[in-house]
Design a binder for these strands. Structure first.
Lengths: 182, 182
DNA sequence: CGAAATATGTCAACATGGCTGACATAAATA
DNA sequence: TATTTATGTCAGCCATGTTGACATATTTCG
């Protein structure tokens, strides 16, 4: 996946409608495009595996977050994914029916359906996370020891300012959640 | 867009099916999730604008690459986007019909339909790139002067090894293409 | 207690943007 | 001339997003 093959995209620049400074400064084309290509490759690894299970990216996202945050409420998941409950319902139902995710009644609030991955679900989730981790680890290996920190800070800074703290807490909390003993 | 609101996703970690080391090492959860959140916010800015024009992300990608690479062949675009010509045809036709993109016969090869943005198309493309650039610039401003380079190297390293060179050449060539005079 | 709010699920319909397969046309090339 | 290439187009399918309406159980509040 994802070689570029621009073949002979050479010098057909003849009739370009270039009009510099339609906006203020020059756009950061490099980062804009690298984000596109990097993200596309990043999600392609899981996509290939998921296809064999008859799942798509939507299933991946649900499985990922439930695995990362066992005991998540449906409402929490909707908040994180920012999709409608109808969209979520469709893929969640499939994951439950096929035994990758299960629901348990909340102990305090019996309206809640707390979500957990089954062992089968965890196995798939970890497989997918492993693929993505391999790619990231390869990248960091190429770049030196400070790369992890630099990447983390870059990505955090790219998140909407209002959401930043929430995301970081969310990640930190999940780290605790998945390792009650250690 | 994109605040997280995990509400009270607190300590419902009771019945976690944790089984460490289904794979070898621990996944890099932080980068995996930060990429998800960062990319989601990154594309949300253009999405809002595009919606007002009745366009979607697919139109954005086409407009972006045609703007960046005036004179691109249809086949080049298919290679970059990695979608089928039928999928491309749909959105491309809309962009042409509504006057954002135009086609010209290739001079050497009259089968080719070389793609160009119209002034109207360029204006929209630059508007969208401007939004994304603002976000990136804000991030770099938070992080110091080496941040641009660090981010670029991280993203390049995340691209499939085979595609890496092609992408970098593609970006470099586009930089030349849009500024024949300077 | 009873009313209202909350958490969830479900039905139906629709839009977007991927996909496959088949086929058509014009132009270049062997 | 025959074939290959670049492009377009028709028809239909699938995944995943949307809105709106409504149902159910449970909790919470006045």
């Amino acid at each position: 996946m994802a070689d570029i093959n621009i073949s002979s995209l050479a010098d057909r620049t003849a009739a370009s409608h270039a009009d510099p400074r339609t906006d203020s400064a020059e756009p950061m084309w490099d980062i804009i495009e690298l984000l596109f290509f990097a993200y596309r490759d990043f999600v392609s690894d899981p996509d290939d595996v998921l296809a064999k299970f008859g799942f798509g990216r939507a299933h991946h996202r649900v499985l990922h977050f439930v695995n990362r945050h066992p005991g998540m409420m449906v409402a929490d998941l909707l908040d994180v994914l920012k999709i409608t409950k109808q969209s979520l319902g469709r893929v969640l139902k499939q994951l439950i029916d096929q035994g990758y995710v299960e629901q348990k009644e909340g102990e305090n609030d019996r309206r809640q359906r707390l979500l957990f991955v089954t062992p089968k679900g965890e196995q798939l989730a970890m497989k997918l996370a492993g693929l993505q981790t391999e790619r990231i680890a390869r990248a960091f290996a190429d770049l030196g020891p400070q790369a992890h920190d630099a990447a983390r800070r870059f990505l955090v800074a790219m998140i909407d300012a209002e959401g930043r703290d929430g995301v970081q807490k969310f990640i930190a909390r999940a780290d605790r959640a998945r390792r009650p003993r250690t």
